[in-house]
Design a protein around this nucleic acid. Structure first.
Lengths: 193, 193
DNA sequence: ACCTGAACACCGTTCAAGT
DNA sequence: ACCTGAACACCGTTCAAGT
């Protein structure tokens, strides 16, 4: 059997690339917040010394920036995926209700923890602020398009998209799963008419 | 003139109490997030050595807990103040619109930064989670009472309160001041009947 | 009652040296 | 091309000693 040469190192190898550090950082972020993203801890969890970190990144802040970029790209891809195939108004309404379900039920504790940690960081962190702004713009555009598909004017679609999306976020900031009855009733108002 | 004895130390004194540390911690939290709340930095800014910190608090975590308690008490007092004097439906409507203005315009950058930092921390921090839950319960109760005053049923008042409050928070998570036109249009929907 | 000063552990960063 | 090992600065924590 031919063994491919000069490709990614085998699973057992200790040699790392930047992506491995970013993935480890995301895990730590989800588990302990940004304060948990520590070079020495990550190195230990990856089985290398902390000195090796500085081969891949200029400093801790560069890792955080890379993590933020990767997060934003992932969220933008996700909203595109979650809102495609809505040719008819019935499809658009179904897509909106599906989104409500995805975010309001917050089944994925990890994704929410990461999102809140990043948004909590944003007011005092320029790179985080930019990442959040990109994600918000993409989500508002996609959700606004769904409301437009339902026959709303542009202004009305924009207002509903903001209400829809801001509500979902506020909800998750307030503990997510709790208050489900009130949340469903509130959500119905936004999509209704 | 009689000089009061055994009262608070004069302004020039270096002797501190726990409240001085908490106030300094809140400043740091607003400016740099929870990562900025560092014992050594606070000590330097207060003009004492970091060793003295441990007279007032068991450890850094105890300072954070005290800060969270003080924040929650302040927010609960504020919402009570912002929603009193609404004997008539007209008063209640006025109070709701005033709240929208207070939160949607977010003129106080510092208060918002503190709130987001604390909420970003909450998913992985039991004490922060409790503080946030207390504040949310107080705000939902007060805002729900305003909607009830407008003649809504309990279920409807609860749903509107959640929508109202979650929207305001989501809004501030998304950059606050921007998108003002869509925000006003969205907010009008919530209070409208 | 409150603070200093010195000690120690942990973590970010640098860099010469290894493979 | 990627990692080790040692060094240094910064910060949390402890504690004996000072006032």
């Amino acid at each position: 059997m031919a063994i491919p040469l000069s490709t990614r190192p085998p699973a057992g190898s200790k040699r790392l690339d930047a992506a491995a550090w970013i993935a480890a950082a995301l895990e730590a972020l989800a588990a302990e917040g940004m304060a948990g993203v520590r070079v020495e801890r990550l190195a230990a969890s990856l089985g290398v010394t902390k000195g090796s970190f500085y081969w891949h990144f200029k400093d801790r802040e560069a890792l955080v920036a890379a993590l933020l970029e990767r997060w934003a790209a992932g969220r933008i891809a996700a909203i595109a995926e979650q809102t495609r195939d809505h040719g008819t108004p019935a499809d658009a309404r179904k897509a909106l209700l599906a989104l409500l379900d995805i975010y309001a039920r917050t089944p994925n504790r990890k994704g929410l923890a990461v999102e809140l940690a990043i948004r909590g960081l944003a007011p005092g962190h320029a790179t985080a602020k930019r990442a959040v702004a990109h994600v918000d713009a993409a989500r508002l555009a996609k959700v606004g398009a769904l409301f437009a598909q339902l026959g709303k004017t542009t202004a009305e679609a924009d207002a509903r998209a903001l209400l829809f999306y801001a509500f979902l976020f506020g909800q998750s900031l307030m503990g997510g799963g709790k208050r489900l009855a009130a949340a469903k009733r509130a959500a119905a108002k936004i999509v209704a008419d």
